[in-house]
Amino acid sequence: MKLVIFDVDGTLVDSQAHIVLSMAAAFEAVDLPVPDRNTILSIVGLSLPLAMRELARAVDETTLVRMVEAYKDAFYTHRLAQGAAASPLYPGAEEAVRRLGARDDLYLAIATGKSRRGLTALLDGWEFADLFVTTQSADDHPSKPHPSMVMTCLMDTGVTATEAVVIGDTTYDMEMARAARCHGIGVSWGYHGREALIGAGAATVLDDFGQLEGALKTIWKD
């Protein structure tokens, strides 16, 4: 058996507007200037406390905790108001997951910097969510690029690292894959650029989900 591990934000779903809105609320809650959009999106993939620290390095821990809670509150409120529209699937994402999920030689998994609550809310809206045999969130692991989430996926499925691939849009995903001794495939529609993904160890970078199965075949051709 082989294993395909998907990142979520920037890979399966386009949540950038939701993230930017929530991060703006976090900074406004403590009367700090809001970072620009590109700066905010550059930290997507890290667990929330670490991402917040990257964006607000000068604040004390008490303020940081307030910002994290303000982000969570805004994210939750926006999700309730918008439903699935807050984090729509990218074109071709559902079809690609369903095609892979129908194969008898693959397991599918998720490794995300989202909280468990956020991930559960997202999965509850996906009719294909049961295709993922194991899902790992930031609540239970060190932040990416630490390999803990991938290692847990490997243990849960019994698949060896060489037979596993991480698919993600950030350098954190590719570095996580490399740290776990897995393959990494980048996607160009997310939050980090093609050159950065290749530099972080991506075997290839997809321009659309239609290229995914061909990329997997190339990686596992031996």
Rank of each mutant, 00 (worst) to 15 (best):
T162F: 07
I5K: 08
D36K: 02
E127Q: 10
S22D: 11
D140K: 08
V166M: 15
T39V: 10
A85D: 14
G118P: 03
F132N: 14
R66T: 11
D7C: 02
Q16W: 08
A177D: 04
I5P: 00
V8N: 01
D105G: 10
V30F: 06
H192P: 02
A70D: 10
A24V: 06
L89P: 03
D60P: 02
E175G: 07
V13K: 00
P91G: 09
Y191N: 15
L119F: 07
N38E: 14
A129E: 12
W126I: 06
M155F: 03
R79M: 12
D36N: 12
L89Y: 05
T152C: 06
E54A: 13
R57T: 13
V65F: 01
D36V: 01
D73V: 15
L32I: 06
V4G: 03
F128M: 13
G158P: 14
S15I: 05
V205S: 07
G201N: 02
E195H: 13
L46S: 05
A196S: 14
L89S: 05
R53L: 06
G214R: 12
M23Q: 11
D31K: 14
L197P: 09
T218N: 04
P147T: 05
Y90C: 11
S137E: 11
K221N: 14
V4D: 04
G210A: 07
D124T: 01
L123C: 14
D140Y: 08
D139Q: 08
A26D: 09
S42K: 12
E54S: 12
L154G: 00
A102E: 13
S137K: 06
H141M: 12
T162Y: 09
M1C: 02
T134R: 03
A56S: 15
D73W: 06
G92N: 04
A26H: 10
C182A: 15
E28D: 13
D36I: 00
A96M: 08
A56P: 12
V159Q: 01
A177Y: 03
G158T: 11
E195I: 02
T218V: 10
G113V: 04
M176Y: 04
G168T: 00
D140E: 14
E175S: 14
Y76N: 11
L122E: 07
T134P: 00
T170Q: 05
V97W: 01
A51G: 15
D31S: 15
R79K: 10
L89Q: 04
T171I: 15
Q211L: 10
R181V: 02
M176Q: 08
D31M: 07
M149A: 10
C182V: 07
D124M: 11
A26W: 11
L122Y: 07
A93G: 01
D207M: 11
F132M: 12
L3F: 12
V34R: 05
D222G: 12
D140M: 12
P147S: 10
I40P: 00
R117L: 14
A56N: 13
K2N: 14
Q211M: 12
L106W: 14
L80I: 08
G113W: 06
V205Y: 05
E195K: 12
A96S: 10
H18Q: 12
S148I: 01
D173W: 06
M23N: 09
G193L: 02
E95S: 08
W220N: 00
K221W: 09
D60S: 02
A26S: 14
I167D: 08
P88S: 10
D222M: 00
R181I: 00
L123T: 01
A111H: 06
